[in-house]
Computed example of a mutant assay.
Amino acid sequence: MITSVCVNAVSGFLMLVTVCFTLGDIDDILTTPTGYPFMQVFYNATESLPGTNTMTAILVLTLTASTITEVATASRQLWSFARDRGLPFSDFFGYVNPGWNIPLNAVMVSLAVTVLLSLINIGSTTALLAIVTLTIGAMMSSYIITIACVLLKRIRGEPLPPHRWTLGRFGMAINIGALCFLCPVFVFAFFPLTSTVEPDSMNWCAVMYGAILIIAVVYYVLRGRHHYIPPVALVKREM
């Protein structure tokens, strides 16, 4: 996993440098008649319609494959959380079909939510951008909480859980550096793109993030904490 991250980081940096040098005029890209700036970037780089079509097709196929894996990942996360009794209707989401041996209910719900979110772009681009930005803020917050908990145990001198891979003596420094990077990104993820904010240019993900956080806390206080079983407890019980 670490090797794949390193390879992708180097490849991504090279791709970023290449795109920056072949980008062309940014205003022309944003106002492209195709409606998709990335297509205009491909055309500026290749100056060929067949080349642009080929690169676009490769990107579409790659994103389609990524969507399938993302839906599979989301469904497994939904199922595992329902298995731990951490969601409403946990019995429905945590059901595994005996014949197929897969959580079909979780898969179909994840697929339906993905399709519905994709259709939002037809009615409102602002709403879709808010949802996309919300995923960034939510992902950053999950990283911050996890790394902060590990760092707190390091500061207290408490032993970490049994693990096969370790950062070694550089662990605390890497944890601190990661938090220094993630915290500003988390804050800026909720900023609007312009200083003069209007309903169309407002970054509504802050409202959505706050609403989801309030709903989650209320559900945990009223019901979740009475039914939720941490995965560690399940593992210890099986052992």
Rank of each mutant, 00 (worst) to 15 (best):
M1G: 09
S4D: 13
V5T: 06
V7P: 00
N8M: 12
N8R: 11
A9S: 12
V10H: 07
M15C: 15
C20E: 03
C20T: 10
L23V: 05
I26S: 12
I26Q: 13
D27Q: 12
D27F: 01
L30Q: 11
T32P: 01
Y36E: 09
F38K: 00
M39W: 05
F42L: 13
N44T: 07
E47P: 01
E47T: 10
N53I: 09
T56Q: 03
A57R: 06
I58G: 01
T62C: 11
A65C: 15
T67L: 15
I68K: 04
T69H: 09
V71E: 02
A74Q: 07
S75P: 04
W79Y: 15
S80K: 02
F81S: 14
A82G: 07
R83H: 12
D84R: 10
L87H: 04
S90N: 11
F93A: 02
I102R: 13
I102Y: 04
P103F: 05
A106M: 00
M108C: 11
V109S: 01
V113P: 01
L117M: 08
L119W: 06
N121K: 14
N121A: 13
G123K: 07
T125I: 14
T126S: 14
A127K: 09
L129M: 12
T135D: 03
T135Y: 00
G137L: 00
A138S: 14
M139Y: 08
M140R: 02
I144C: 04
I144M: 05
I147A: 05
A148W: 10
A148C: 05
C149I: 07
L152R: 15
R154H: 07
P159D: 14
R164E: 11
L167M: 15
R169Y: 06
I176N: 00
A178P: 00
F181E: 00
C183Q: 03
V185N: 11
F188Y: 12
A189R: 05
A189W: 09
A189I: 11
A189L: 07
P192N: 05
L193A: 15
T194L: 10
S195F: 07
T196H: 08
V197M: 08
E198Q: 13
E198G: 15
D200N: 11
S201W: 00
S201R: 13
W204E: 03
C205V: 05
A206N: 06
Y209S: 06
V217M: 13
V217G: 01
Y219Q: 04
Y219G: 09
L222D: 04
L222F: 13
H227T: 15
Y228F: 15
P230I: 12
V235T: 04
K236R: 14
